[in-house]
């Protein structure tokens, strides 16, 4: 499997990372280098092996479903690049 410029453009779009046209080809080559190297995993027989999804076998703990005081709005908004009247501000979404 090999990555071309179009694929880089597609995954950059999925990743929400803007890329200049002339950066696509070099990135494709870098990613292909890494993917060619990880291809060696194909040598390992994993027939019937369960995927490992966490570092330790543990059941997810459950807490009591009690209401807690949330974080204060001012704290939440303190780091926002733009906030107004208790809200985060984003560029216009709907025309």
């Amino acid at each position: 499997m090999s990555i071309d410029k179009d694929t880089v453009m597609r995954i950059a779009r999925l990743s929400r990372i803007a890329m200049e046209e002339d950066a696509l080809e070099p990135m494709a080559q870098e990613l292909n280098g890494i993917l060619a190297w990880v291809e060696q995993l194909g040598e390992v027989d994993t027939e019937g092996v369960e995927p490992m999804t966490g570092a330790i076998a543990a059941t997810l703990p459950q807490r009591d479903d009690d209401a807690e005081a949330g974080t204060a709005t001012d704290d939440l908004l303190a780091n926002a690049p733009e906030a107004d009247d208790g809200f985060f501000v984003v560029p216009k979404v709907v025309e």
Binding site: V38, L41, V44, T46, E50, P51
Partner: peptide
Amino acid sequence: LKAQKVRTL
């Protein structure tokens, strides 16, 4: 998925 299986091994 392949990597997660190798991780198990």
